[in-house]
């Protein structure tokens, strides 16, 4: 279609409004993180002072501990969730039809649709019922759970694009089931796995609601630490740390997209 949606009346105005609402606040935060003044509204010239403050100021130890928790939890949660997602994808995509397949898919993608606050409350009740003390472990378990669908979707999409004849050919050439999986399917699946892992990592890194419910006292991740600081008033150092988190998110989402894209090109039949 030539022109398409661009020619609808009011397209430009609506698009500009949406983009402004979505990205102007982020832009303001990013710009003001370089503000030399202590005010969060008046521009006082360019400066790195709030970035230095994040690493060396009075709140630095707190932020450093929170960042360490965030990164290690995201790494572990993404890794475990991706492993589970690969197993689930192979079962779902390669096993043909079985009873309850649609129900299983709905169950896997449930965390994408259930309001996060509901999952948060339910997870908290679950942990206190089984007597698990809130802390690092409870955050990790909760993160693994809600990361699975994010890792699952790119892996399953990739897998359904891989011709089952590759595995059949490997079996035909005397590979065992395990060898066919390890030597043929896994390398072909790699771009989907990388993409899924990166997505799961960033979802875990950014999570606030569920983490805030299950973290317990004294335990902080970066988002909860930022929230804690903001409650005592917004200081420019929060803008600096938010901008850094934003940069990391953009980087990972871009990498995830690139991994999915290059993989698709390489696997396309010639």
């Amino acid at each position: 279609m030539s022109g398409g949606v661009r020619h609808y009346p009011g397209f430009a105005a609506i698009a500009a409004l949406c983009l402004a609402i979505l990205y102007l606040p982020l832009g303001v935060v990013a710009v003001y993180s370089f503000n030399a003044s202590t005010s969060i509204t008046a521009w006082g010239g360019f400066s790195w002072r709030w970035y230095i403050d994040v690493f060396q100021g009075p709140e630095a130890p707190r932020f450093r501990a929170a960042a360490w928790n965030s990164v290690t939890i995201a790494f572990l949660a993404a890794s475990v969730a991706t492993a589970i997602a690969v197993a689930a994808a192979v079962a779902m995509v390669r096993s043909g039809r079985f009873r309850g397949k649609s129900a299983t898919f709905a169950l896997i993608s449930l965390p994408l649709m259930v309001p996060e606050i509901v999952t948060a409350v339910a997870t908290l009740i679950f942990f206190s019922t089984i007597g698990l003390t809130p802390g690092y472990l409870t955050i990790l378990i909760a993160h693994i759970t809600f990361c699975i669908p994010f890792a699952y979707l790119p892996v399953a999409a990739r897998l359904s694009g891989i011709d089952p004849a590759f595995e059949a050919a490997a079996r035909d050439l005397y590979a065992s089931r395990g060898q066919a999986f390890r030597l043929i399917l896994l390398p072909l699946l790699a771009p989907g796995i990388v993409s899924g892992w990166l997505l799961a990592f960033i979802i875990s890194l950014d999570d606030f609601i569920i983490t805030n419910f299950v973290k317990g006292a004294g335990m902080e991740t970066l988002p909860t630490a930022i929230f804690g600081s903001v409650k005592q008033g917004i200081k420019p150092n929060i803008m600096a740390i938010s901008t850094m988190l934003l940069a990391v998110s953009i980087l990972f989402v871009t990498l995830s997209w690139l991994a999915g894209r290059t993989g698709r090109r390489a696997a396309a039949p010639s």
Binding site: D163, A165, F166, A169, A170, R171, D172, A266, A267
Partner: peptide, 20 residues
């Protein structure tokens, strides 16, 4: 017998050459 224990080999319709 599973395929890996049969002394027969197959040429597939779309070849199924391992792309990697």
């Amino acid at each position: 017998l599973p395929p890996d224990r049969r002394p027969v080999n197959t040429v597939f319709q779309h070849y199924a050459l391992f792309p990697h």
